[in-house]
């Protein structure tokens, strides 16, 4: 069960930054590399006790979902919905150019 301890490289940190949509600077990536290697080292120990027979817990209180009736409530006004937006146009939120990804 105990797999190798991950070792972060600068490239990996940059790649994680891409996935996280954070434009990390080289300096930040280098610092994070060092810090995350130390942190990773200390938290990999969870694998020591996590046997195959232990069920995972996602939520500490065992509940089943309350299913709400399909009844409408007053929505936000368009003005309220847009009130925090950095840029708007014609009642809509403005995004810079979207490339064809996903």
């Amino acid at each position: 069960m105990i797999s190798g301890m991950p070792t972060f490289t600068r490239e990996e940190i940059k790649h994680l930054g891409d996935l996280a949509r954070i434009a990390l600077t080289d300096q930040e990536a280098d610092r994070l590399k060092g810090e995350l290697n130390v942190i990773a080292d200390s938290i990999t120990k969870v694998q020591e006790v996590a046997g195959g027979d232990v069920p995972p817990t996602a939520n500490p209180i065992p509940l089943e979902a309350y299913l709400r009736p399909d009844e409408a409530e007053e929505p936000l006004t368009q003005e309220a919905a847009l009130s925090g937006a950095p840029v708007t146009e014609s009642g809509m939120f403005v995004a810079p150019r979207i490339l064809g990804e996903e």
Binding site: D70, E71, A72, E73, P75, T77, Q78, L82, G91, M92
Partner: peptide, 22 residues
């Protein structure tokens, strides 16, 4: 459905933009 999957905003095709939100 009358409302959205995770909130009670009414759904209608072709409404004014950003008026069917909670």
């Amino acid at each position: 459905t009358n409302t959205k999957l995770f909130c009670p905003a009414h759904i209608e095709f072709g409404g004014e933009p950003n008026t069917q939100l909670t």
